[in-house]
Design a protein around this nucleic acid. Structure first.
Lengths: 239, 239
DNA sequence: AACCCGGGCGACCATCGGACGCTGGTGCC
DNA sequence: GGCACCAGCGTCCGATGGTCGCCCGGGTT
């Protein structure tokens, strides 16, 4: 299934047009005629480098090296990490040490409320008032005891939440289908991109506008990968 | 006149309510009863430190030391700096090695056009599309040969342009009045704040919204000092 | 020519948006 | 218990918004 080809990161798999790879329609046919090719060469499209601006800004792109574990003897009082998400059907509670997707989406609602609070506070203080979920909001989340909300997580699943908000029917079907097939969260997450790309096409490829028109999505930055995917598909369209 | 009290920076002078210090109404009365007091103590209000957020972000606020002149032997090909602005009446051409205020405002229009261009380009490339005048726009300005447009300058006079857009009548009167009195640009610039504060009050102190509602001003970040001034006056109101 | 006023804008800084990949939790055997 | 998988999120990085004050242009004496 799709899961086998899905990557840890956001590398994008495109072997055909969007229509032909809608996750719900695809099981085996995706790689027909390519089954003997090495996975790295069969339809995995690396997106263009982001540094495409022509004004002369420089990008060094050195491979960053992550810091090893924190020094021993540090107190830190570090929270245990959250349980991983699993693909659940709408309304289904995750069993065992897992979290379900309804909970994931609720995190986005919580962020929206947190933003509202941050906005109220900053207005009251005459400071500039964020219209998006910014670092400040994540800081506020930590401060007010919602330490389980953090930036990398929330940014990671924005487009999944977007699908949930824009087409609950399709989002629910996708969840049921991926759960049934036993796909993991990474595969489900990848699959959420394509219905959005189709919607973007139906909106003149204006993904930004599509999300901005929705009350709940307006506050989230458009994920880079989603924007790039739309751009890529649009350029295929005009071939 | 007002000019004598005005500071190089944006320190804010408030000896009374906004009503009492509307620049057009004020010549000498401003400091009545305080003329013997040291200027630093007479109504020069230092605004609250920006690091007022309670979430625990740290601000070191070390005095930055500016780099001395560039190394000798550097080519650089540096453009000579622009002629300073002087206060001119509407339609009046600046004489000598000076630039007039109509020219200043035209620079803002040019930035608006530049932004439109940047938006067109970034849409075409599927990159994220700025809705404000960002660093990218200033970079684009340099790139396309408008080297006379730069960030510190444009940010410095935003509120003057705002007054010009929101109440051309009042803006023109202010220019005529300050020119007649022989005030310098700094004094005129300071004076531009107060009519805006009054307008903000009439709009429920929503200066952000006031500027955002205007087609031409929407693309400019609200100047910090203007937001702070509004905040300050609002809190005086409720005393 | 010498001086000084005042303002243009180069350069700096904290913080931002964005993302990588290490670490360790988790289920399976 | 041991192992392999995989995803949470600590941490990093280039670039941004915002501003200070050095430097020098320009008018005056």
């Amino acid at each position: 299934g799709v899961a086998k080809e899905s990557q840890r990161d956001d590398s994008i798999i495109l072997t055909g047009t969007v229509n032909s790879i809608l996750p719900l329609n695809v099981k085996e046919p995706l790689l027909i005629g390519q089954n003997s090719v090495h996975p790295a060469e069969c339809g995995l499209v690396s997106l263009p480098e982001p540094g495409s601006e022509s004004e002369g800004r420089k990008l060094s792109k050195k491979k960053q090296k992550r810091r090893r574990t924190k020094e021993a003897g540090e107190d830190g009082e570090d929270r245990p990490r959250e349980h991983p998400f699993i693909v659940t059907e709408p309304g289904e509670l995750a069993r065992g040490k897992k979290n379900g997707l309804d909970y994931l989406f609720d995190l986005y609602e919580q962020c929206g409320k947190l933003l509202l609070e941050v906005q109220r506070i900053s207005k009251e203080r005459g400071e500039k008032c964020p219209i998006k979920v910014t670092n400040q909001v994540f800081r506020h989340a930590k401060y007010t005891g919602s330490g389980y909300i953090n930036k990398p997580k929330m940014r990671h699943y924005v487009h999944c939440y977007a699908l949930h908000c824009l087409d609950i029917e399709q989002s629910n079907n996708l969840r049921r289908s991926f759960k049934e097939r036993g796909e993991n969260v990474g595969a489900w997450r990848q699959a959420c991109y394509y219905p959005l790309v189709v919607m973007a096409r139906e909106n003149g490829w204006d993904i930004e506008g599509l999300l901005n028109r929705n009350e709940k999505l307006r506050i989230w930055y458009v994920p880079t990968k989603l924007r790039q995917l739309c751009h890529l598909e649009r350029s295929k369209d005009s071939d």
